[in-house]
Amino acid sequence: MRSVTVRRYGRGARWLHALVYTGVLTELVTGAWFVLIGYEAGFVVGLTDVHEYAGFALTAVVLGGIVVGIRGARTFLAESVRFRRSDLRWFRHWPAGLRTGRFAYHDGHFDPGQRLANLVMVVLLAILLASGVGAMYLPGPFGIAVFQAHRFAAYAITPVLLGHIVIAAGILPGYRGVWRSMHLGGRLPEEVAERIWPGWLAGYRAAGTDRSGGYAIGAGSAEPGTGRAPTPGLRTWRGLWRARSGSARKS
C-alpha cells in the first residue's frame, strides 16, 4: 500500500530555492577560498570573477523571484515574523526533538526555529548582496567600510547556512525525510509533515484529497485547470487555529 504524501512546496518555490542555494554555495566556496589564500591570489586563479558574477546572478534571482512571486514573498515574510508565546515551549523541546522527532505543537507554515532562521538569513543575505555591489563601486573609505560589512555578514551567515543544510538534508534523526519537501516533486510522507509541521498539515487535510494520493493544497474553490484548491491564506490558518483552540477549551 502506497503511503499518503503531502505537497509542501510547488514547482516555482522549488526552482527558486534551488537557484538561490546554488548561488549562495558558490559565493561561500569562493569567499572561503579568499580567506584561505588571500583576496589578491583570487585574481590569479580567476575566483574573483566567479565570485562577482555569481553575486550579480544571485541578486538578479532574488529580485526576480520577489517581483514574479510577490504574493509568495509577502506570505513568506508574514509567516516568518509571526511569533507566539507558545513558541518558547517549542524551543524548550527542540534539543530533545532533534534526536526523538517529538517536537512541541505549533500552527505555523514554518516551525519557530525556521522562522528565526529565515529572518536571520534574509537580513544577512540582503547585507551581503548590497555590500558586495557597494564594495565594487563605492570609492575610498566608503568602499572599504562596505567591504568590512560584507566580510562580517559572510562570517555571520555561514554557521546559520550550515545548520540549515544539516537540518534540511534530514541528517538529524528528528528531521529525517524533510528534504523531500524541496525535491522530487515537493512531496513528503504525511507522517513526516505531522511530526514537523502539525498545524500546517491540519490545514492541508481540511482541503481534501487530490488524485495523486496526497492532500490538495489549501481550502476553498479549486484553481482553474488544476483540480486543486489554492493555498490557504493567513486568515484561513488563523481561523483553523481559533477553531482548534475553541474546541480544546470546550473539552
Rank of each mutant, 00 (worst) to 15 (best):
M1P: 05
S3V: 12
T5F: 01
Y9I: 11
G12S: 14
R14I: 15
A18R: 14
V20T: 14
L25F: 09
L25G: 12
L28S: 11
T30R: 04
T30E: 04
F34S: 15
L36H: 06
E40M: 10
V44M: 04
D49E: 12
E52P: 00
Y53F: 09
A57D: 02
A57H: 00
T59I: 07
V67N: 03
I70T: 08
G72Q: 01
A73P: 02
R74K: 00
L77N: 00
R82W: 05
R85A: 15
W90I: 12
F91K: 06
R92V: 13
H93V: 04
W94F: 15
Y105S: 10
Y105Q: 13
Y105T: 12
G108H: 13
H109T: 14
P112V: 09
N118F: 13
L124C: 08
A135K: 15
L138T: 11
G140Y: 01
F142L: 15
G143M: 03
I144C: 00
A145M: 06
A145S: 07
Q148M: 08
H150A: 10
F152C: 03
Y155S: 07
I157S: 11
G163Q: 06
V166Y: 05
A168K: 05
A168F: 03
V178M: 07
W179Q: 12
H183W: 12
L188Q: 11
P189S: 09
E191W: 08
A193C: 13
E194F: 03
W200G: 02
G214A: 06
S221V: 14
A222K: 09
A222H: 09
P224T: 08
T226E: 06
T226R: 08
P230S: 11
P230D: 11
G233L: 04
T236E: 13
T236C: 01
W237Q: 13
R238M: 04
R249W: 01
K250I: 04
S251C: 00
